[in-house]
């Protein structure tokens, strides 16, 4: 998506706030942040963020486009919604973080090997295949995402966990062939493809 990134840089020049307002989920709220820092102090993974939410908001306003979009900070969001319910200005912060992460992905700017980005992609593709999540394949894809030998290491490290889940009948090795799904996945895929087309058109057309 680097072509799209170039196009966006061309289109918005020095106005990154405008770009975020136009293309990032709930981005129009960013200018409402009053820099109190309640979000950053409320985040369960706060210490893992290079730039906590309040800082990201100020960086957006200061036009620090590359620093924001290539940051792995927003990928630290666990979707706990603490920041949303505590924000005195009622900014939908969780959604803005999701939106920044997604927009960075669309533009091809996510840091390589960012694990939550990788998991999110594996999850989405897994779910879209049959319309429902195949947990066994989801777990295995995650173990083997960095190659075969690392995959074997990961699988062995989690062997005990897998065995106890199978014993409790909460993991089914047979999911590897077939598994759960909706009746006609291609119909769901058609719906989502159409939704994607509508969204792409907005991304290309908005200014």
């Amino acid at each position: 998506m680097s072509d799209m990134n170039t196009a966006m840089v061309e289109r918005y020049r020095n106005n990154f706030l405008k770009e975020v307002e136009s293309h990032v989920e709930e981005g129009e709220w960013v200018k409402m942040c009053m820099q109190c820092g309640v979000c950053s102090g409320s985040c369960p993974l706060g210490n893992a963020w290079a730039h906590p939410p309040q800082e990201l908001f100020m960086m957006i306003r200061a036009g620090k486009r590359e620093e924001v979009l290539t940051s792995d900070s927003m990928w630290m969001c666990t979707s706990c919604y603490n920041c949303i319910v505590r924000c005195p200005r009622e900014l939908p912060i969780t959604h803005i973080m999701h939106g920044l992460a997604h927009y960075a992905k669309r533009l091809g700017l996510v840091p390589k090997k960012q694990p939550t980005n990788e998991f999110a992609e594996i999850f989405w593709n897994n779910m879209m295949k049959k319309g429902r999540v195949n947990e066994l394949k989801l777990g295995l894809s995650m173990y083997f995402k960095d190659g075969f030998s690392q995959g074997i290491k990961n699988a062995l490290a989690n062997q005990k966990l897998g065995q106890s889940m199978m014993k409790a009948k909460r993991m089914n090795p047979m999911e590897i062939i077939g598994g759960h799904g909706i009746k006609n996945p291609s119909e769901l895929q058609k719906i989502i493809q159409k939704a994607q087309e509508i969204e792409d058109k907005k991304l290309q057309g908005a200014n």
Binding site: A120, W124, R132, V133, I192, A195, E199
Partner: peptide, 26 residues
Amino acid sequence: PDWNCCAASIGYGSGGVLPRLTLSAR
């Protein structure tokens, strides 16, 4: 009948707003 996945709280990575919300719309 025939419900599908909601994309949970990790769907935002690959799914944009409309594709993601449309899963629930179905």
